[in-house]
């Protein structure tokens, strides 16, 4: 399933470079340019994050309820992140990227890529 998801993401992302990680337990060592969004109390925090092109953004779920990170355009989709699981995506192109939790669609956030 892991491979299948990865392939699907590659297809939907076209030629864009991307990085996808979903792991249980503590987050791996962060690269210096890592950008983190915490998912807690049914909210993305921060709700808006501005990063430079080429940055990898990591979402980590701190709730006891699973959440997803799902791009409004289908560019990225995490699958269910259980407690303490993380998802990362590398943003190569400047633009504004809106995302939601497909389990709790009231949860919304935005990545602005300069």
């Amino acid at each position: 399933m892991f491979t299948g998801r990865f392939r699907l993401l590659q297809r939907s992302a076209g030629a864009a470079m991307l990085c996808w990680v979903l792991a249980t337990g503590p987050a791996p060592a962060e690269t210096p340019d890592a950008h983190r969004i915490v998912v807690k109390n049914f909210m993305f925090a921060p709700m808006t994050l501005t990063v430079k092109a080429g940055s990898t953004v990591t979402w980590s779920n701190m709730d006891e309820e699973p959440h997803t990170v799902s791009s409004d355009t289908g560019l990225f989709r995490s699958g269910a992140m259980d407690t303490n699981e993380i998802f990362s995506f590398k943003f190569d192109k400047p633009g504004t990227y809106h995302f939601t939790c497909s389990i709790h669609p009231r949860m919304v956030g935005t990545i602005v890529v300069d």
Binding site: M1, G4, P66, T68, S102, I103
Partner: peptide, 9 residues
């Protein structure tokens, strides 16, 4: 339910 449809495909 929405928990049954979180897989990528």
């Amino acid at each position: 339910g929405e928990h049954d449809t979180t897989d990528a495909t």
